Simulated scan of single mutants.
Amino acid sequence: MAREDFSFFHSLRVRWAEVDMQGIVFNGHYLTYFDVAFTEYWRASGLPTAMQQAEEGCEMFARKATIEYQAPARFDDVLDIGVRCAAFGRTSVRFVLEIHLGDQHLISGELVYVYADTTLRKGVPWPQEWRDTMTRMEKIAPEAA
Rank of each mutant, 00 (worst) to 15 (best):
L120C: 08
E56A: 15
H100G: 00
R13H: 02
P142H: 08
F8K: 04
F8W: 05
G28Q: 06
I107W: 06
G109M: 10
G46Y: 03
F6A: 03
F9N: 08
R15Y: 06
F61L: 14
R15G: 01
P142Q: 08
Y113W: 11
H105D: 07
E98F: 01
R63F: 00
E129P: 01
H10D: 11
G46A: 09
E129N: 08
V124A: 12
A37H: 05
E56M: 13
A86E: 13
F34T: 01
F88E: 02
R136G: 02
F88H: 09
M137C: 08
H10L: 09
W126I: 13
T66K: 11
Q52K: 11
D20N: 05
R43C: 02
A87F: 00
E98A: 15
F75R: 00
R43H: 05
R63G: 08
F9S: 05
E4P: 00
Q104E: 15
Q52H: 05
G46V: 07
V83I: 14
F8I: 01
D76V: 04
A145K: 06
F8T: 00
W130S: 09
S11H: 11
V112Y: 01
P142R: 10
P72M: 11
G57E: 13
D117K: 11
F9V: 04
E129M: 10
E55W: 08
P125Y: 08
G82R: 09
A73S: 15
V93P: 01
Q128N: 10
D117N: 15
R43K: 13
F9D: 06
T118E: 15
N27Y: 11
V96H: 10
T49R: 10
I99C: 12
C58L: 09
A71Q: 13
T135Q: 14
V36K: 11
A144S: 10
I107E: 08
Y69R: 07
F95H: 12
S108R: 15
E143Q: 12
A87P: 00
Y33I: 04
Q104A: 14
Q53I: 01
A37K: 03
I140A: 08
R131Y: 00
M21D: 06
G82M: 10
V83R: 06
D77P: 03
R74G: 04
S7N: 11
R63E: 11
S108I: 07
W42A: 01
E143R: 11
R13G: 01
F88M: 12
L97M: 12
V19D: 09
R13T: 07
A87H: 06
A54G: 03
A73H: 03
Q104P: 00
A73P: 06
W130H: 09
F8P: 04
G46R: 04
E68R: 14
P142A: 08
Y113T: 01
R84G: 00
L111K: 10
V25Y: 03
L12S: 03
T135L: 13
A144Q: 14
Q104D: 13
T135N: 04
I107G: 02
D35F: 04
A145C: 13
T135M: 14
Y113K: 09
Y41G: 08
T32Q: 14
T119P: 02
V19Y: 07
A71F: 03
F26E: 03
E68H: 12
A2S: 11
M137V: 02
R131M: 10
Q52E: 15
P142V: 02
T32V: 13
I99M: 14
T118P: 07
I81N: 09
E55Q: 15
T91F: 00
A145D: 11
G109S: 07
T32R: 15
Y69I: 01
L47Y: 03
V19L: 08
D77K: 04
H100V: 01
